[in-house]
């Protein structure tokens, strides 16, 4: 699919780790994730079904496992926000096989609206850029305005490719695409 990326480079953002106090006064740490499946399975078992979008995360544990196994494979970039030893948010970049990466982010309901999403996305984009990723896209349901606002804040613009969903893209480097 041809996709228009903005001229302007997003950020650039620093890769993780980063530590901050969220708007509820909780101490949150964002780190690259390489801890294996179980901790994240726990997080997604707690995930509020109302916050699912476009079919993910899957609702049942076996499907959650299969889905996470793919995301934790070597060529994906995973970043997790921790409150003490509890994972509260997860953001991912997955190569699309066409020279760019697809992005998604999930934050547990009780940690939403506290600024964690912004830090998580900035960390993920910073980590992605460090890995040589220059082009990132995502789709979001058109009516999900808090999510659209968050994506705009970190540098995504609408590509007008979407149907039900809005497609947005961000540039991390000035190269033409990510194929070497």
């Amino acid at each position: 699919m041809t996709r228009e990326y903005p001229e302007e480079i997003a950020g650039p953002y620093d890769p993780p780790p980063r530590e901050f106090e969220d708007q509820e006064g909780r101490r949150i740490t964002v780190r690259r994730y390489d801890d294996g499946l179980e901790t994240l399975v726990e997080m997604y078992r707690e995930f509020n079904p109302e916050d699912r979008a476009q079919g993910i995360p899957p609702a049942k544990e076996p499907q959650i496992r299969t889905w996470l196994e793919e995301l934790l494979s070597a060529d994906c970039v995973n970043v997790v926000a921790w409150h003490e030893d509890r994972p509260t948010g997860h953001a991912i970049l997955v190569p699309d096989g066409e020279g760019a990466s697809e992005l998604a982010i999930f934050v547990l309901r009780e940690y939403q609206g506290a600024g964690i999403g912004t830090e998580l996305l900035e960390s993920l984009l910073g980590a992605g850029r460090k890995e040589g990723i220059g082009h990132v896209w995502l789709t979001v349901e058109r009516w999900n305005s808090p999510a659209v606002a968050l994506y705009q804040k970190v540098g995504f613009v609408s590509t007008e490719n979407g149907n039900f969903e809005l497609e947005m893209a961000a540039r991390l480097t000035d190269s033409d695409d990510d194929r070497s």
């Binding site: 979008a53 476009q54 079919g55 993910i56 899957p58 889905w67 997955v94 699309d96 697809e102």
Partner: peptide
Amino acid sequence: TSPLGKVKLGEIAE
């Protein structure tokens, strides 16, 4: 389905 597993309806279906 997208690389991340998101379901994307086609234009015809929409």
